[in-house]
Simulated scan of single mutants.
Amino acid sequence: MPGLSAGSAVPELEQALTVPAQPDAAAFFDVDNTVVVGASIFHFAKGLAARKYFSTSDLRRFLWQQVRFRTGGEAHNNIASAQESALAFIAGKSVAEIVAMSEEIYDETIAARIYSGTRALAQLHLDAGERVWLVTATPEELARIIARRLGLTGALGTRAEEQDGLFTGRLIGELLHGEAKAAAVRDLALREGLDLAQCAAYSDSINDIPMLSLVGRPVAVNPDSALRDEARRRGWEIRDFRTGRKAARIGVPTALVTAAAGGAVAGGLAIGRRQERNRGRT
């Protein structure tokens, strides 16, 4: 039989190496402390503040509201307060400018804070022909940047209204948290024709029990103490990619660590301004 020419062999080789898509399977990943070390919104806010896009008082006020929300639980007034603070933080700001600067902040800060273990888990799903989505309370524009940079399918996040290229300060829908996150996953599964029994979900937080309970393969990643206990009780997988000192902090609310870091950032910015003023007087 005559041999195949090099040109005719290439399509056959490409076909042999192509992983068939799994149209009814997907994986859903929370972001903060699951994919990214710490709170992604803090890293972005810190980068914007360093560019003097927000004032120090804006940053302090935002961080304080987030601490109250994260440590106060999911009571309606806490969620409403978190929504209002997040919207006040971006109201009147240019969508294009924030997205452009956030791309830079990803390269400067976020890229080095991606958990390599979680990234590998996401890649396993992609290699199996499955779609991979981020599902997070982080603003959707920022979540999409992270998803795109990691080569994922897409992202679902908290949506802020835009008008004439500016954020209006109003929310579209509700904060993507708890039950709202689970509802978003159900809606996505319906649109995309996914079988949730064939899907996986990954999170670090007890607040994501609704999303984790939807899928056939729930996985606790870097879990807080409450989720670790619940995962053990239900027989769910547990993956911990923290090491040493970080792993020992399982029971410490992330918001408290974020708040401390935020205080340091705000203090550093204030010190920098005082030094500039002092140099101007000499």
Rank of each mutant, 00 (worst) to 15 (best):
T34V: 03
A182N: 00
Y53R: 15
L166G: 00
W236T: 13
S57H: 11
A200G: 00
A259Y: 15
S57V: 09
H76K: 14
E192I: 04
L196K: 00
D30L: 04
S116N: 13
R113F: 12
V252A: 15
V219N: 01
V257H: 15
A25K: 01
L269I: 10
G173S: 06
R281M: 15
R273D: 11
G268S: 14
E14M: 10
G7R: 11
E140K: 12
R149H: 03
G129Y: 02
L121I: 07
R191D: 12
A201Q: 02
R119G: 08
L171M: 08
P218S: 09
L17K: 02
M1V: 13
P253G: 11
T71D: 13
E14L: 12
K52Y: 13
A86K: 01
L4P: 02
G165A: 01
A143K: 02
E14V: 12
T153G: 02
A128I: 03
Y53E: 14
T282V: 14
R148D: 10
A266K: 09
A183N: 08
G72F: 07
S8F: 07
K93G: 10
L227P: 08
R239D: 03
L4C: 06
Q83N: 06
S213I: 03
L4I: 04
T254Y: 15
D107Q: 14
L121K: 10
I238M: 02
P11S: 05
L188I: 11
G154E: 02
E103H: 12
G117C: 10
H43F: 10
A201W: 00
R149I: 02
R131L: 00
S85I: 03
A266V: 10
K93T: 11
R51N: 12
F62M: 01
D24K: 05
S102C: 13
A255P: 09
S5N: 04
P253N: 14
A112I: 11
V95T: 12
R70V: 09
R274P: 00
M101F: 11
I271W: 14
W236G: 11
A189K: 06
V265E: 13
I209G: 06
G151L: 00
Q22S: 01
E104H: 06
L150Q: 05
F69P: 04
T136N: 04
D229W: 08
Q83V: 00
D195C: 03
R60H: 08
K246G: 09
Y115D: 09
G3P: 08
S57M: 11
A25W: 00
T168E: 01
Q15C: 07
V257W: 15
G173V: 03
G72T: 09
G117W: 01
A231E: 03
A260L: 14
L126Y: 02
S8D: 11
F241P: 05
A91L: 05
A82T: 07
A100M: 13
T34C: 01
V265P: 07
A183C: 01
N77V: 11
A259G: 15
P139M: 08
A231L: 03
A189N: 09
Y106G: 05
R279D: 12
E161M: 00
H76D: 11
E84G: 01
F89D: 01
L13M: 03
G151P: 04
N33P: 08
L214K: 08
G262K: 06
A261M: 14
G216A: 09
I90M: 13
R51Y: 10
